[in-house]
Nucleic acid binder design. Sequence first.
DNA 1: TCGAAATGTTGCGCAGTGCGCAATTTTTGT
DNA 2: ACAAAAATTGCGCACTGCGCAACATTTCGA
Lengths: 259, 259
Amino acid sequence: MQTKDNPRAPYIQSLDRGLEILQLVGRSKRSISIAELADLLGIDRSSAFRFAVTLRRRGFLSCQPGKKDFLLGPSMWALAREYDWSKLLVDIAHPDLSLLATQINETAHLAVREGKSVLFIDSAHASRVIAAVGRTGELHPLHCTAHGKAILADADEGELRALLGLSPLRKYTKNTITTIGALAENCAAIQEMGYAIDDSEHAEDLRCIAAPIRFNNHVIGSIGISAPVSRLPDSLYSEYGEKVCVIANKIGGLLRNSE
Amino acid sequence: MQTKDNPRAPYIQSLDRGLEILQLVGRSKRSISIAELADLLGIDRSSAFRFAVTLRRRGFLSCQPGKKDFLLGPSMWALAREYDWSKLLVDIAHPDLSLLATQINETAHLAVREGKSVLFIDSAHASRVIAAVGRTGELHPLHCTAHGKAILADADEGELRALLGLSPLRKYTKNTITTIGALAENCAAIQEMGYAIDDSEHAEDLRCIAAPIRFNNHVIGSIGISAPVSRLPDSLYSEYGEKVCVIANKIGGLLRNSE
DNA sequence: TCGAAATGTTGCGCAGTGCGCAATTTTTGT
DNA sequence: ACAAAAATTGCGCACTGCGCAACATTTCGA
């Protein structure tokens, strides 16, 4: 009943394989055939077939009309939509959010993407209660906030255009990035550094530093801090950026274990 | 390997049970314990335990810190987020969307909820090309469009308040519903009739009729038609409403089979 | 248009796996 | 602190899921 390596882990092989299929199909943008599944899992075609049938019966996989290969199905969608995901992330991340706020002695925020915006789902305030911006529940633009750019970090220019391209990027301040090209460059830099900076790009006299929270190599949210320019000079970028990254990675790790 | 009833359906029992668990956990708002799972599935505690462990290993279930009971996990979230759901629905629904447009000879739209808005993801135009409102990709308010209200149909007053309550309902026209209470009543009526009506509640001289698309008893989107008041008098409400409902239910059925 | 190769689907039988039972450990409630 | 409930582990049998091989269907190239 268990794998070779750990005789003490009582897990169910066929369920595990089914879940692996879901993840494989979910990650590849294109649809996957039975034969490919069999190859990827190293199992027989007939087995792959039976797995696929089972997953489709429950609506976790579906086929495009007329085709035989598989995409994620509506059950996945229905479950994920109904669920209060923010709650999960908030539950797991809140202690570290507070930690970050006290470490740096500024306001810290937790955010996720919602459509074409950033949604702030939690915050923690340091004793210094000028209690700034970005209250929980607010929506802000993606292209000119540290959280937004952190969430976009892994997107290439094409994906950015698909997501934001319909309307031109609105200019909020003189620092706002207004072209997709420039935003793509910025994202590349964020990937390199690990954190995103908003230097008064959304509101005057407000700087933020945020880092993407990753799970299974996908960005699922961001965490960061905000402060007026006077308290967040350039010279502190790398120190604070490091701290934010560490916390973001820690939260990613907690999601993995999530126990 | 198969259930009692159909010896010809080659499905995998333990995967199926695992998926059933995901759906059970996903639908109940609160977290579920091992004991409850065992009860709900009619299996032994030890089995339920092994299922839960397997699901958690892959991140499809998670526990709140310190607790032992289960919520949907981050894998579910990550998969669903990455995926291009609109595409699935558009693929499946487009033929019927066109059908609806030609049947009624007006513009038809397909929409899903995105956060606190309605997102139009597809449309079909009749020959009569005054090609109205609601282009694909646009966001509109939930509380004053037929699509929005159809999507909210199953929500009770508490849920509406949780979703919309932070800011007051904006008044677009003299017909706009502006209180949560009135909206809840309207939703109840929609549930009863099966379709929602927007009588110039969002834009003057524009009426829409839309019906919720359901999957597993959850509203996942809406389909409907739009036309100027002159071409959509009260007397046609029930006839068109019926037609829209029929198509919406048909799409729901296609999602079930989705082949 | 046809035939060959690839893919999808079904039947079958064995071995490995998942199941329930029962014992042990941990948690909860009073 | 004790009892009751829940979680976790061990164990062995039966049944399930697996690969194999046959069959059906689709794809593709000439």
